[in-house]
């Protein structure tokens, strides 16, 4: 008889709970959650991590991560994270925020958290639209992109231009690691995970503010099927929101 030897190659990260999510079919939040969960497992920090959920589609993220979690007011997660990290420097503190949360209503909080070099990690989901409220224009909605509050397409003469948060925050001395990645295919998802790992390592080494922006899809509000959405992201978002590292402090390079 031949002995069967099997190797476990894939399982749910311990940092995620065993529940179904409420996310729409085709949404990339699930991918982003999984990457964060895998990184927390690999760093073996689940037991000393506190997450902060935003207001938006991922408002219920606290049900999906098996780590202690608080729910912030819209946009205020970086302020809550600041308080937690200042009083508990031994904990791993991360926020998970969407584009409306981070780049519109919470612009002040994210800029100052980065400016102070708060030793926290921010996972920034940019899908160029307000998902939970039903598809309104976001600060990252592209020029001419149709949404329920820009039905004729975003007219930059009225609504101004989409904000590039990585580029903006990378100018701040307190930012140690700022990277934009995409979740539209496997190759990019693997790169995204590497960036998330670097971000958490940056925090654990006490090097300052770290943020990974993840270009994401919203099939429901983009009114596209999941595959079309991934292609639309690739063809439209990446040209305006280029991928890569925007800030890598010298000490981060040595991690």
């Amino acid at each position: 008889m031949t002995e069967v030897t099997e190797e476990l190659v894939y399982q749910r990260p311990e940092s995620l709970t065993q529940v179904h999510t409420h996310y729409c079919p085709g949404c990339t939040h699930g991918t982003a959650h999984r990457l964060v969960g895998e990184v927390l497992d690999e760093l073996n920090v689940r037991g000393r991590t506190i997450g902060i959920a935003p207001v938006g589609c991922s408002v219920l993220a606290y049900y999906y991560f098996d780590v202690d979690f608080a729910e912030a007011a819209h946009g205020r997660a970086p302020a809550m994270a600041t308080g937690m990290k200042r009083t508990h420097p031994d904990k791993v503190i991360f926020t998970y925020q969407g584009d409306g949360d981070l780049a519109a209503i919470g612009t002040g909080e994210i800029v100052h958290a980065a400016g102070r070099g708060e030793n926290i990690t921010v996972i920034f989901i940019n899908n160029a639209i307000y998902g939970m409220t039903g598809g309104q224009m976001a600060p990252t909605t592209l020029e001419d992109q149709k949404t329920s509050s820009s039905p004729l397409g975003r007219d930059v003469s009225i609504a101004g231009y989409p904000l590039r948060m990585c580029e903006l925050l990378a100018t701040l001395d307190g930012a140690a690691y700022i990277s934009r990645q995409s979740l539209h295919d496997v190759r990019h998802i693997r790169r995204a995970k590497k960036a998330i790992l670097t971000a958490f390592k940056t925090q654990m080494a006490g090097l300052g503010f770290s943020m990974v922006e993840l270009l994401s899809t919203c099939s429901t509000n983009w009114k596209m099927d999941p595959v079309e959405s991934l292609e639309w992201l690739r063809d439209n978002m990446i040209p305006y929101f280029p991928l890569g590292d925007f800030k890598v402090a010298e000490a981060v390079k040595e991690l």
Binding site: M80, T82, G83, T87
Partner: peptide, 26 residues
């Protein structure tokens, strides 16, 4: 101990909220 001048009262109260969630006096 921890002292931080926030960028606004909005940020200050949410920093307080974050600390309060961890069960220490703030």
């Amino acid at each position: 101990r921890t002292f931080l001048q926030a960028e606004s009262e909005l940020a200050a109260i949410n920093m307080v909220y974050g600390v309060a969630c961890t069960g220490v006096r703030v």
